[in-house]
Structures are given as structure tokens and as C-alpha cells.
């Protein structure tokens, strides 16, 4: 039996009168790929925000390992080993690709500002190690040679991969990917899926994935949680979820319905 890495317990989130999440619970097993799916506006991104504490959940608890993380600051959550990407790419647009990765390494660098001013041997060693690691990551995300390009000048696919690289730079145990294939054509989608597989194989991390393309979800996930209108309507292995009448109903009339109904 594998260990539970992340546990979302009865989380609720309301914005004024709008209930974005109510009583959502699920567990993410260590080493698995866990997907969260659901129609637009179902509350998927809000779940992510509640895990990383970009939003403070209005009720419920979030546990990471055996530590309760709701109530921490986002930087505290990052320090414990959770990192994420965003549905609309949110790179630091006005610094270069490699600097984006170096910012991601912030947590692991130990040099402080006066060390930097005096350029102490410690700072230099620290920076050199960071630089090496950044180059390695740059290579891994397929951006070697593009490191000195401002992030905003990178192509769309490059930006997606760089954002994942930046998340990896924090050396997370759990990586949250919010629609990594959004806006991609089938070929790019396949490449991205292969890339995500490589990420998992190389860094041995747990993935929590929001996806809207059923093809991706069904082929990659170990487990799927389905949200609709802020509540969990199904959870299980992909094949089980796919047959669930509630899920089919939720997707009926949406574009995804065609994919959701088994061929």
C-alpha cells in the first residue's frame, strides 16, 4: 500500500456569495499521477489555489505528508515541497529564461545580500552550483541555447516547458500542473504528455494534474477526481470514472462529452 502524500479534507471555498468549492476531499498517493477533471468553472484551479495557499480555504483542511499546511503562507508551502504551474502561463516575463530557473532555486540558495555585495567565496560557490543546476534544467526542458532570451520572447511551447522547469527548480515532492496542454494542437499535446512522463521518470515526483483533454487524462492518470459545480462527483481509476453516469451527465452537452463516452 502506497503512502498518502497530499490529503484534501472537506475543503470549501466561497467568494462572497459564490460557492466555488464545497466539501471536496481526495487523497493523492505518493508517486502517482492524479488528475482533477471537470467542466469549465467546476473549481479545479480553485482546488490548486487552496492547496498552495494562494487562497485560504474557508473550511476544511489540507495535509501534506503528516503536516497540516492550510494556514501557511504560499512560500511556506513551497518550502515544504509543493510547486505549481498556472493555467495561463505566469513566467517572470521581463527576465531571461535562465533567470526564471534561478528564481525557482531561491529556496535552495544560501547566499545573502551582503555576501553578494562582497562576492564572498561562499556566494560564488553557491552561485556557480545554481548556475550548473540551471543549465542542467535548461537542457532538460529543451531550452539549452535559449537561456539568455527574455521569457516574454519565447515561443508558447517553450514558455510552457520553462514554467514547468521553474517549478522543478524548487525541487518539489509534489508538482501541480494546471492544464499543461491548454491551447496546444494534437501533436504538441502528445509532445507535452511525453515530456510530463519524462519529468516523472527523472525526478520521481508525484503529479497532480488538471486536464481538460480526456485523451491525456485517460492515458496518463493513475487516479482521477471529477469536480462539477464545486463538488466532487466521482473518483477512481480512469476506466471506472469514464463509465460513471454522473460524470457522463456532467459532461453531456460539452465538447468533452464525445471523448468521455467510451467509443
Amino acid at each position: 500500500m502506497r503512502k498518502t502524500l497530499l490529503s484534501v479534507c472537506n475543503v470549501g471555498m466561497r467568494f462572497g456569495g459564490l460557492v466555488a468549492l464545497s466539501d471536496v476531499s481526495f487523497d493523492v498517493q505518493e508517486g502517482s499521477i492524479h488528475s482533477v477533471i471537470g467542466p469549465n468553472g467546476a473549481g479545479k484551479t480553485t482546488v490548486f489555489n487552496c492547496i498552495t495557499q494562494n487562497l485560504r480555504p474557508t473550511s476544511g483542511e489540507v495535509w501534506f505528508g503528516d503536516e497540516r499546511i492550510d494556514g501557511l503562507k504560499p512560500d511556506g508551502v513551497a518550502a515544504r515541497g509543493i510547486s505549481r504551474t498556472y493555467q495561463n502561463i505566469r513566467l517572470f516575463r521581463n527576465i531571461t529564461a535562465i533567470e526564471n530557473l534561478l528564481v525557482g532555486m531561491h529556496l535552495h540558495l544560501r547566499s545573502n545580500w551582503w555576501g553578494a555585495v562582497l562576492n564572498t567565496p561562499f556566494t560564488r560557490a553557491d552561485e556557480r552550483a545554481a548556475h550548473d543546476e540551471a543549465l542542467e534544467l535548461l537542457q532538460f526542458v529543451g531550452l539549452r541555447g535559449r537561456g539568455d532570451v527574455l521569457a516574454r520572447n519565447l515561443a508558447y511551447g517553450e514558455q510552457r516547458r520553462l514554467e514547468i522547469g521553474r517549478a522543478l527548480a524548487t525541487r518539489p515532492r509534489l508538482l501541480l500542473l494546471d492544464e499543461p496542454t491548454a491551447g496546444m494542437n494534437p501533436r504538441e499535446t502528445s509532445e507535452m504528455m511525453a515530456f510530463v512522463e519524462r519529468v516523472r521518470a527523472r525526478y520521481e515526483i508525484t503529479l497532480l494534474l488538471i486536464e481538460h483533454q480526456m485523451r491525456v487524462v485517460m492515458s496518463m492518470s493513475d487516479r482521477v477526481t471529477v469536480l462539477d459545480h464545486g463538488t466532487k462527483i466521482a473518483e477512481g481509476r480512469p476506466a471506472e470514472v469514464q463509465r460513471d453516469p454522473a460524470v457522463i451527465a456532467a459532461y453531456l452537452g460539452t465538447a468533452a462529452a464525445a471523448h468521455a463516452v467510451p467509443a
Binding site: 498552495t52 494562494n54 503562507k73 504560499p74 512560500d75 508551502v77 513551497a78 518550502a79 510547486s83 505549481r84 498556472y86 505566469r90 513566467l91 517572470f92 516575463r93 521581463n94 527576465i95 528564481v103 525557482g104 531561491h106 529556496l107 521553474r166 517549478a167 527548480a169 524548487t170
Partner: peptide, 10 residues
Amino acid sequence: DDEDVAQALG
């Protein structure tokens, strides 16, 4: 460039 993202990176 982005305060929230910076914070989410630690």
C-alpha cells in the same frame, strides 16, 4: 513581474 508567483516559489 509577479508577486504571487514569486511567493509561490518560496
